[in-house]
Structure formats: C-alpha cells, structure tokens
C-alpha cells in the first residue's frame, strides 16, 4: 500500500515536472545576465528594461490587447445569443447547424487561416486590425456557443415559463432570468475565447496586416534569429497575464461557491 502511494506521488511529480520545467526554465533565463540560454550567470532586469523601450513590442502588445478584448466581447455576445436561440427555436436544419458548430473547432487552424485570408482577398479588404478582429471573433464563436450550451442543457428550462407567468416580458426574462442563470457558461466561454485569442499565431499570421502585429506574431518573428533573453522576458510577462486572468476567474468561482454553500 505504502509503496503504491509513493509511486503515485512520484508519477504526479514527474508529470508536473514535464509540464512546468520548460516554463520555469524560461522564467529563470529571463533574469539571466548572459544573452545565451545555456548557463545562468547572474541576475538582471536588463531585458525587461529593454522590453519596455522597444516600441515595436509595445505596439504589438497594444494590438494584442485590443484584438483579444474586442473579439472576446463580441464573440461572447454573439455566441451566447446564438446558443440561446439554438436551444429555444426549432427550425429546419437546426440539427445540421448544431453539428456544423464543431467543424471550426476540429479543422486545422491553418485551413481556417487560409480560408479567411482568401475571403478577405476576394472582398478586397485591406489586412489590418479589422480583419484580425473579425477572424478572432469567427474562430471564438463556436467555443462560446458550445460552452454556453452545456450550461443551458443542464438548467431547468421551465424558469422561462415561470418568468413569463410572473409578469416578465421577453426582454426582462432574458436579462433578468436566463442570462444570470447561464452566467457560469458565459464566463467560461469568454475565458476560453480570451485565451485562444491571446496566444493565437496561425490564424493571425494569415489575417494580420503590416501595422497589426500581435505579440505572439512578434515573438515568432523574433525567434527566427534565435531565442534572445528579451523574448524570455516577454513570454514571462505573457504567462503572468494569463495566470492573473485564470486566478481572477477561479477566484470568482470559488467565492460564488462559498457564498452558495456556506450556511
């Protein structure tokens, strides 16, 4: 029994080591005085300083934030309403659309990227922040719909009738009852959309224009000439941002759970 337990712990340790060792290495080397990612020679904040005086990077950061915030907001809005509509109304081809939703989720991103690009070229649109945002919205919507739908399927749909029965009109029923009731699904859909948008390279690569580089694209460009410590610093910052978002989102959930189950 005892040996079993040790084996189990060792296994878990190895899995975590495998997952986190690269990330830890990266963070450590971002403070390295030597520009080569081989030996840790001394502690410095030099690379972070360099980062903040690098205007291309700062522009990329700004673009990333704009693209991910706007695309998250829009895709969450559209995706939520679509999920509600797909649940509520019956129409010809509904089943087909429901299945179709999984296509963008499973097809290779590169295919999606190329097809978006060819649409833009066909429409003679100039590639830029606009096309980038539209692309991110497009690939995020299915994820939002799927995550909202999971929650809708597990809620008691009679609450809608109850709301009508108690005098709420359609709009009030939606805003005061349905949306709050499926909020957990909306939040997880939005988190998913945000993280997908934040670190997307492939689709952005095809649909971004000259002035609309995002951070992942910029990093991708920088490592063509070898991994430099400022890339380490940059990715460390990105990890920090994503960790913060995740921690906040799980803190909200934990607080909600506490409020509901503590008597």
């Amino acid at each position: 029994m005892q040996r079993h337990k040790h084996l189990k712990n060792l296994f878990i340790f190895l899995v975590f080591l495998f997952l986190y060792l690269p990330i830890i290495t990266l963070i450590v080397f971002s403070f390295n005085t030597s520009p080569l990612n081989i030996l840790f020679e001394g502690f410095t904040l030099e690379w972070y300083g360099k980062l903040f005086s690098n205007t291309t990077l700062l522009d990329a950061l700004k673009n990333t934030i704009i693209v991910s915030v706007v695309s998250t907001a829009v895709s969450t809005f559209i995706g939520t309403l679509a999920a509600i509509g797909l649940q509520k109304y019956n129409f010809i081809g509904k089943n087909f659309i429901n299945k179709l939703l999984y296509v963008p989720v499973v097809i290779p991103e590169i295919v999606l990227g190329i097809s978006l690009l060819s649409v833009y070229t066909l429409l003679k649109l100039n590639l830029g922040l606009g096309t980038l945002i539209v692309s991110h919205i497009a690939f995020s919507i299915p994820f939002v719909i799927i995550s909202v739908r999971t929650v809708i399927n597990s809620t008691n749909l009679q609450i809608e009738e109850a709301a009508h029965d108690l005098g709420a009109n359609d709009f009030k029923t939606l805003t005061n009852v349905i949306i709050p009731e499926i909020m957990p699904g909306i939040i997880s859909g939005a988190t998913l959309a945000f993280t997908l948008s934040l670190d997307d390279v492939i689709i952005s690569y095809f649909t971004a224009g000259p002035g609309s580089n995002t951070l992942p694209l910029q990093i991708y460009a920088m490592i063509k000439t070898g991994i430099t410590p400022d890339v380490n610093a940059l990715t460390t910052l990105m990890i920090l941002v994503i960790m913060t978002v995740l921690i906040i989102s799980s803190l909200i959930q934990v607080r909600k759970m506490k409020k509901e189950y503590v008597r």
């Binding site: 809620t155 008691n156 009679q158 609450i159 009738e161 109850a162 709301a163 009508h164 029965d165 108690l166 005098g167 709420a168 009109n169 005061n176 009852v177 709050p180 009731e181 909020m183």
Partner: peptide
C-alpha cells in the same frame, strides 16, 4: 400569460437558482 392574473406553481418549482429566496419571491 403575463397579462393574466394567474400564477402557477410548477411541479419542479422552477425557482431562479441565481436569486436569493427574497429576490425569488419578489420577482413578480
């Protein structure tokens, strides 16, 4: 339905799970 002076108690209650007891009761 919402214009009828009738209220229904549903078999499965259909309470609003995101609202407190007080808010549920006061909804109408």
């Amino acid at each position: 339905p919402r214009k009828r002076e009738v209220n229904t108690i549903f078999q499965n209650f259909a309470l609003f799970s995101h609202m407190t007891v007080e808010k549920n009761i006061g909804f109408g």
